[in-house]
């Protein structure tokens, strides 16, 4: 009898315990979420603090809103070396290489098209203009965008320039080869970083 009572008692105890535990878990989760939110706010505050010393004409402190949505990035140079923007530009207009202008416009190129139409003319309209792109993305994000744009825009038409897997029926000459080499990615990237 006693044994039985104990058993059922312990059972009840366990029950209340699990119920309490879930309460504690819930509270913990809430605290965590608050922390994360606080962390976000504080980083933003930090950003504000960086420019906080300056004030706008209207008297408010200057602040900069940054887009944290595309927070995926590749921080390190793929080749371990800095890129060459001149070479990058040539790769961007080369039909067999980047061919970026098949889809993207850029005012700098439009200007050059006036004197060198065979190289710069016929810019496409499929992707957004690359004017001021360095102001919209950080270097690491742009590197990832070149390596595999689908990491950022899953349904995009933009090719992945440095990937060899998850393809269908790649033709033999291109099998297991990325479109661009590591240094070529860095070269294009260095050109893009100049588009402020």
């Amino acid at each position: 009898m006693r044994f039985r009572f104990l058993k059922s008692g312990s059972c009840g105890c366990v029950k209340t315990l699990s119920w309490q535990r879930s309460l504690v878990n819930g509270a913990c989760f809430l605290v965590l979420v608050t922390f994360v939110i606080l962390a976000f706010i504080s980083t933003n505050a930090l950003i504000a603090a960086e420019t906080g010393s300056e004030t706008e004409e209207n008297g408010l402190v200057k602040f900069q809103i940054i887009n944290l949505i595309h927070s995926k990035s590749i921080q390190h140079s793929l080749s371990g070396k800095p890129g060459n923007p001149k070479r990058g530009e040539a790769l961007m207009v080369n039909r067999k290489k980047g061919n970026c202008i098949a889809c993207h416009g850029l005012d700098v190129f439009a200007e050059k098209a006036k004197t060198k139409p065979n190289i710069y003319a016929d810019m496409g309209e499929i992707g957004p203009s690359l004017n001021g792109i360095a102001g919209r993305y950080q270097e690491g994000e742009l590197r990832l965008l070149l390596v595999d744009a689908k990491q950022i825009f899953p349904d995009t038409i933009m090719p992945a320039f440095y990937r060899i897997e998850r393809f269908t029926r790649v033709d033999d000459p291109f099998l297991n080869k990325p479109i661009l080499k590591p240094q070529e990615i860095e070269d294009i990237l260095s050109f893009l970083m100049k588009q402020k």
């Binding site: 689908k150 038409i157 090719p159 992945a160 393809f167 269908t168 029926r169 790649v170 033709d171 291109f174 080869k177 479109i179």
Partner: peptide, 9 residues
């Protein structure tokens, strides 16, 4: 609707 090729379109 199948993406294909190295350009994956």
């Amino acid at each position: 609707y199948q993406r294909r090729g190295q350009l994956d379109m």
